[in-house]
């Protein structure tokens, strides 16, 4: 197991270098003047342009630029955005928000998704099964911005159950409470997928020979289904949820926009919009790293859940 983890961590190095170089090359190799718009309506003074180019090594060939940039990154220096705010500070602040949002969404899809999936699975073909299938199909079919705006309008504006938008200065429980509705919106589509995945796997496993054995052992129905069948059915579900968590930690551009959340998604989006290469490359590098780590965790978890998968 330790060997496996070390091997996987080593494998991350080339992936990380390759991916960041691509991003770096794409962002910095794009035509356009990075100092444009930096000095208001007028073009920037020649001295400023020169200083800017030196600071960002813009006169070096691309690979050298990249190497110098990564060297700084490795020391924890993410540089500053064009607005002169250190990327590291803003990113870590926004990452807390994104992580909270992702956690709410994941908890929501795990609890409700598995619950609905189990209900549907053990009542296959009955009313509750059709209800789950139909409602999940409905949720999957609606774009997330529609769900977001409708939820914001009904639950926030009209019935005033939840805060309409998110206040970046909220702390403690408040910061969680105001992210609840966005989190539910963000997790809604995945709830549908989790419910369907759970249902399908449970239905299949209920027909399995070992479930028949569990019955023949004189176990109660709740143990037969709730332990023997469900334990096997949840293997692919947990994998899906893990991968989804990795994706959600990359930020949620649409949901963040709707609820005015200062998360990672919006940060990268505005970085791209403003051609702020330092922001984009820095943030994306962190995203890639987080995604790789979450995936490693999912793979390890998979081996724990399913003893037939060996990591040796």
């Amino acid at each position: 197991m330790t060997k496996y983890v070390i091997r996987r961590l080593l494998q991350m190095i080339p992936v990380l270098i390759g991916a960041t170089f691509l991003i770096f090359a794409m962002v910095f190799a794009l035509p356009g003047d990075p100092t444009a718009n930096k000095c208001g309506e007028r073009p920037c003074p020649a001295e400023y342009v020169k200083k800017f180019e030196e600071e960002h090594n813009l006169n070096d060939p691309l690979p050298i630029q990249y190497a110098k940039y990564m060297g700084k990154l490795a020391k924890g220096d993410f540089g500053t955005s064009f607005r002169e705010i250190p990327v590291k500070d803003e990113l870590s602040e926004r990452y807390v928000v994104t992580a909270k949002l992702a956690t709410i969404a994941i908890l929501f899809e795990t609890v409700l998704g598995i619950f609905a999936g189990v209900l549907a699975g053990i009542r296959k073909g009955k009313f509750i099964d059709n209800l789950v299938l139909l409602s999940t199909l409905f949720v999957i079919s609606i774009p997330i911005f529609v769900i977001g705006y409708v939820a914001q309008f009904l639950l926030g504006v009209k019935w005033r159950i939840f805060p309409v938008t998110v206040n970046a200065n909220a702390t403690g429980l408040d910061s969680w409470w105001q992210l609840l509705l966005p989190g539910l919106v963000l997790g809604s589509v995945s709830v549908a997928y989790v419910a369907r995945l759970t249902r399908t796997n449970l239905v299949e496993n209920l027909r399995a020979d070992y479930v028949r054995t569990a019955k023949a052992k004189g176990l109660t129905t709740s143990r037969t289904i709730g332990l023997h069948a469900l334990r096997n059915s949840l293997i692919p579900v947990v994998t899906f949820i893990g991968a989804d968590f990795g994706a959600l930690l990359g930020g949620a551009i649409v949901t963040e926009q709707i609820f005015n959340i200062q998360g990672v998604g919006g940060y990268i989006f505005s970085g791209i919009h403003n051609r702020d290469g330092v922001v984009v490359v820095g943030a994306v590098t962190v995203l890639i790293l987080v995604y790789l780590l979450v995936n490693l965790l999912v793979d390890i978890l998979y081996g724990v859940l399913d003893p037939r998968i060996s990591h040796d």
């Binding site: 399995a208 020979d209 070992y210 028949r212 054995t213 569990a214 019955k215 023949a216 052992k217 004189g218 176990l219 109660t220 023997h228 334990r231 096997n232 293997i235 859940l305 399913d306 003893p307 037939r308």
Partner: peptide, 25 residues
Amino acid sequence: RRKTRGPEISMIFQDALSSLNPVFP
């Protein structure tokens, strides 16, 4: 009746690999 399965009457099946639960020792 459930309580008779195991202590009174029990059964073994054809394919022991699929009849044993793969995820428990």
